[in-house]
Simulated assay, not measured.
Amino acid sequence: MGQSAVRPLGVVTRGTTNPNRLRRVDNWIVAYCGDRLRVAADPLVVDLGYGATPVTAVELRARLAARVRPDVRVVGLEIDPVRVAAAAPAAEPPWLTFARGGFELAGFRPVLVRAFNVLRQYDESEVADAWRTVTRRLAPGGALVEGTCDELGRIGSWVLVDAGGPRTLTLAARLAGLESPAQLAERLPKALIHRNVPGERIHDLIRALDDAWRAAAGYAPFGPRQRWVQAVRAVRDAGWPVHGRPRHWRRGEVTLPWTAVTPTPHRPPT
């Protein structure tokens, strides 16, 4: 399906980006969402809000084509028409194209949407509506990966959302140079970043990771990967429903069901 005449939904982002900034989430998409694309009749992916340059959309197409299926199509969507025009030289139709659009997805029906560093400038109260707007326009069985990361992609987090709502939360870090898992709190997705306070499950999770990381200091001589794996294993053994196996954790990731960190409902003032 092509572009829609509907006015793009959303606001223009800051647009900052860097090469390889989204490598961590792209690798996760390959591992956890690749099967959605492999079985799709039309393996269409939307990179929503790719920024001032198209580099991350170019990289996403290359990674998916090399590791999932070569006929995957990526459409980069931006609200700002100047950014769409600037991205045109990077297009490789039909495999990589760029168009104007927002949360309404410009009439496309993708299997997967990646939206990174898009909702950071929105209010927390707007997140659920944005998720619903996107997921209602997905192909059957499709999913949204929405999250945030720092400018170089060293730390980040993302939520997998489908038609039924949020499913998983992933925290990820470049382990070389990681001082503490507490740093992950700086780049929580918008739905959680204001919930890192006592009484919230995301606060409990980050504290549990931080405590386990300190307790695993004896593994530091074997490298940060071994220390991280030991910390994640300890968190899992303490009862947190961690997904995956050590081979996944070695990438500096930890993925859990969204139900493990669901924020408490806001209560109206009395």
Rank of each mutant, 00 (worst) to 15 (best):
L105C: 03
R247T: 07
F116T: 09
P43L: 10
H243C: 11
A234F: 10
R137M: 00
D80V: 05
I29L: 13
R61V: 15
V113H: 02
G252W: 08
V254E: 04
V161Q: 07
N18V: 10
G2D: 12
V111W: 00
C149T: 12
D123C: 04
G34F: 04
P265K: 01
N20E: 14
C149D: 14
H248L: 06
N20Q: 15
L160I: 04
A212P: 13
G107I: 04
S4W: 11
A143Y: 03
D71Q: 10
W249I: 09
L169C: 07
D204K: 06
G252Q: 05
T97Y: 07
W131V: 01
S125Q: 06
G156M: 15
A91W: 02
R23L: 13
E124D: 09
F103C: 04
T133Y: 01
R136M: 05
P8Q: 03
P54T: 10
Q3A: 06
A40M: 11
H194I: 13
V242L: 07
A115T: 00
G141Y: 03
E146F: 06
T168L: 08
P181M: 11
L9T: 03
P19L: 10
T170N: 11
E146P: 02
A215W: 05
A130K: 04
A106V: 05
Q230S: 14
V111Y: 03
P265H: 00
R137L: 03
T264F: 02
A260Q: 04
A217S: 14
T97I: 11
N27L: 08
V55M: 05
A86D: 01
R21K: 12
R236I: 06
V118Q: 03
A91M: 04
V30E: 10
R67M: 06
V261I: 00
S180E: 15
W28S: 09
N18T: 09
A176P: 10
E104G: 01
D80W: 02
V25C: 09
A41S: 10
A216Q: 13
Y122C: 05
T270I: 09
R63Y: 08
R187I: 15
P221W: 13
K190I: 12
G239I: 08
M1N: 10
C149S: 14
T133I: 05
C33T: 09
G101R: 01
T270P: 14
R36H: 13
V242N: 11
F103S: 00
T13P: 00
V75Y: 08
G244L: 08
P224C: 10
L171W: 11
D162E: 11
T97F: 12
T264A: 05
P268K: 02
L119N: 02
T168C: 08
A99K: 05
P110M: 06
R214C: 13
